[in-house]
């Protein structure tokens, strides 16, 4: 009988092989792999099967798919401009991945894919590299004007250039840590709250107050986490759009 509370809030993030064994090779199918696959299935369900009617006047599922699609489409158009619409498929891919990874992680006992900096970091690096390369391909050396703030007085421009350059390279770090941190924190806090629920078993006198409180707190956290999951997906994508805009129109 456990007589004390033991906290393992980070255990849920452990990447472990799905089909036995302990070694995680590069090809091993892990719990993370499973939940990424479930994410793909959800994308298929909402955006492909849901929209299969292709009706001019949509039903509910098709309408939902259209709202989802238009949300990203409008984001790309409004934030980045009409000339960025060729990159819409990439942005939609990123949003689909982050959105479904975030929301699926809300299901208890699931795996929070986007709480891993390995995932968000690689995503951010992919965005960073493609945007940087695109910036140079589209603008050539003019892309460097991104770091040369013409609106500032000439004598502060070199200093600003250094700051801009640093902030440019910090982008993928903040981009990825923001998402992973948010997702990880929420889940960890929920797990901590959940641990307190055992108090009713250990000490009924204290537990009679603490256990319901813990459940209520987790329930409230759920409301918050739904918001966080959606908003973080949105922020990750909109930042991608902002970076894309810098690549297409570097001059300040």
């Amino acid at each position: 009988m456990a007589s004390s509370l033991t906290f393992h809030p980070m255990e849920q993030f452990t990447v472990s092989p799905l089909f036995g064994g302990h070694e995680v090779h590069w090809y091993t199918i892990t719990n993370q792999t499973l939940w990424m696959a479930i994410g793909i299935c959800c994308i298929l369900l909402l955006l492909v099967i849901g929209a299969r009617a292709r009706a001019l006047v949509p039903g509910r599922s098709q309408s939902a798919a259209e709202v989802f699609y238009s949300f990203v489409h409008n984001m790309v158009r409004d934030v980045t401009g009409e000339d960025a619409l060729p990159y819409f498929p990439y942005v939609l891919t990123i949003f689909c991945f982050v959105f479904f990874a975030n929301t699926l992680s809300l299901i208890p006992t699931s795996f929070a894919v986007t709480s891993h900096v390995a995932v968000t970091g690689l995503l951010a690096i992919i965005v960073f590299l493609s945007v940087t390369i695109l910036g140079f391909v589209k603008n050539g050396a003019h892309f460097l004007e991104l770091f040369w703030v013409k609106s500032a007085p000439w004598y502060v421009r070199p200093a600003l250039a250094v700051i801009e350059l640093i902030s440019y390279f910090v982008r993928p770090v903040s981009h990825s840590i923001r998402l992973a941190g948010n997702m990880m924190a929420g889940h960890a806090v929920m797990e901590v709250f959940a641990t307190f629920a055992a108090l009713i078993v250990i000490s009924p006198l204290v537990g009679v107050f603490v256990t319901p409180l813990s459940l209520a707190a987790i329930t409230a956290m759920y409301a918050l986490e739904v918001l966080v999951a959606v908003v973080q997906a949105y922020i990750f994508t909109i930042l991608t759009c902002v970076y894309l805009k810098d690549a297409l129109h570097p001059s300040h």
């Binding site: 255990e11 452990t14 090779h25 792999t33």
Partner: peptide, 15 residues
């Protein structure tokens, strides 16, 4: 577990 670098290659691959 996020800093368990032994899983990174696997995560990168499946991502």
């Amino acid at each position: 577990p996020q800093l368990d670098f032994s899983t990174y290659v696997n995560q990168f691959f499946w991502l």
